[in-house]
C-alpha cells in the first residue's frame, strides 16, 4: 500500500495492485435522482478501504450494488472478477457483509444464529460446528454462545456479525457503520478485530462517520458527497491536497528574527505569526527538530513545540467548508 500513498489519489485509484473490487461509472438512480453518480474506484487485495461521507451520500447504496442486493442503473462493478448483478451467488459466497445496525433472530442463541447462516452458506455439519466455535472464540463470545441473542448488547451483536464473516472465511469483508453506537471500549475491541482480519489478508471495506477511527485503520479512504466520490487516497495525501500541507507545527519561543528563520526550513510552506512569541508553521513533514535547531541557532528561548498531525476530521471539515453545498450535514 505504501507505494500508493505517494501517488495522487486519482492515479492511486487506477493502479491498485491486484484489485479485488473495481467500479467504473457506477450509478444508481431512483427516478431522476442519482443516489450514486458515476463513481470509479479500485480496491486492492488486503487493503482496508474507508467510505466516508454524510448520511445519504450513497455509501450504503454503493455497498448494496457490490453485493447484487440493489440494481445497478448504469456503469459496472466487478467483485473478485464477478459481476454481482449477474453472478450474485459467486460474489456472496466469497464476500462477507455486516449491515448497518445488524440484526439477529432474538429467540435463537448466538450459535443457532450462526448455524442458520452457515447452512445458507452451504457448509457441512461438522465443518459448520468447527468454524462457528472458532469464530465465537475469536470475537470473544464463546462464553455466551448458548445464550439467546435477545440479551446481547449492541457491541456483542456487532461482534457476532463479524463472527459470521469469519465463519464464511470471506475474502472481502464489507462493514457498514461497524462502530456507530458502540461505547469507546467496544469500539477499540472491534477495531482490533478488524486489524486481525487485515493481518490475515482479508480486504476490508468499511463505511463510517467516525473519522478518527477510520483514519487509524484505513489504508485509503474515499470521501462521498451527494453520490460522488469527491476525494480518494491515503489520509496524508488528502491532507496535502486539502489542507495544503500535512503538518501544522506550533512554536512558542522568544528570540530575534525567529519567524524568518522558521520560514527558511526546507519543507515549510507557510509561517503565521500568532502572537509576538507564537508561530504556526505548515509543513509537508514533521519539522519540529529543524524548528528547535532554528530557535537555538538565534539563541532564542524555546518554550513550546507541538505538532498537529493531519486529521481526517480537519480534512473533512475543510473540504466541506471550502465547497458549501447547501444541505450537506456534517457527520462525525
Amino acid at each position: 500500500m505504501n507505494d500508493q500513498q505517494n501517488e495522487t489519489p486519482r492515479n492511486a485509484s487506477r493502479t491498485a495492485s491486484d484489485p479485488v473490487i473495481t467500479a467504473r461509472g457506477l450509478t444508481r438512480r431512483y427516478g431522476k435522482i442519482e443516489v450514486v453518480n458515476a463513481i470509479d474506484f479500485d480496491i486492492g487485495r488486503g487493503e482496508v478501504f474507508g467510505l466516508l461521507g454524510p448520511n445519504g451520500a450513497g455509501k450504503t447504496t454503493t455497498i448494496l450494488m457490490m453485493l447484487g442486493l440493489t440494481e445497478i442503473s448504469s456503469g459496472e462493478v466487478s467483485v473478485l472478477g464477478f459481476n454481482p448483478a449477474r453472478e450474485p451467488l459467486k460474489v456472496k459466497r466469497r464476500v462477507g457483509y455486516l449491515p448497518d445496525a445488524v440484526g439477529f433472530y432474538d429467540q435463537l442463541t448466538a450459535t443457532e444464529n450462526l448455524a442458520y447462516t452457515a447452512k445458507l452458506m452451504g457448509l457441512a455439519r461438522a465443518e459448520r460446528a468447527r468454524r462457528i466455535e472458532a469464530a465465537l472464540v475469536r470475537v470473544g463470545l464463546a462464553d455466551v454462545a448458548s445464550r439467546r441473542v435477545a440479551t446481547f448488547s449492541r457491541g456483542m451483536r456487532q461482534r457476532l456479525g463479524l463472527a459470521e464473516i469469519i465463519v464464511k472465511r470471506a475474502e472481502i469483508a464489507i462493514l457498514d457503520e461497524p462502530t456507530s453506537g458502540l461505547d469507546p471500549q467496544a469500539t477499540q475491541e472491534f477495531l482490533a478485530l478488524i486489524g486481525e482480519l487485515k493481518a490475515e489478508g482479508v480486504t476490508v471495506l468499511l463505511s463510517s462517520h467516525m473519522l478518527d477511527q477510520v483514519q487509524r485503520i484505513c489504508d485509503r479512504v474515499a470521501l462521498f458527497q451527494a453520490g460522488r466520490i469527491v476525494l480518494m487516497g491515503a489520509v496524508p495525501e488528502l491532507a496535502v491536497k486539502v489542507l495544503g500541507a500535512g503538518f501544522a507545527v506550533e512554536v512558542e519561543a522568544e528570540g530575534p528574527g525567529i519567524a524568518r528563520r522558521l520560514a527558511m526550513i526546507p519543507g515549510v510552506t507557510q509561517v503565521e505569526t500568532l502572537a509576538a512569541d507564537r508561530f504556526r508553521m505548515t509543513a509537508e513533514r514533521d519539522v519540529r527538530p529543524d524548528a528547535a535547531r532554528a530557535v537555538v541557532a538565534v539563541d532564542g528561548s524555546l518554550r513550546k513545540l507541538s505538532v498537529d498531525e493531519p486529521s481526517l476530521e480537519a480534512i473533512y471539515a475543510r473540504y466541506f467548508q471550502a465547497q458549501p453545498t447547501g444541505d450537506v450535514r456534517h457527520a462525525a
Binding site: 450474485p88 456472496k92 459466497r93 464476500v95 455486516l98 445458507l120
Partner: peptide, 14 residues
Amino acid sequence: NRRTLSRILAQPIY
C-alpha cells in the same frame, strides 16, 4: 424490522 433481511440475503441464496 429485525434488520436480519440484508444479512440473510448477503448469504449465497436468492
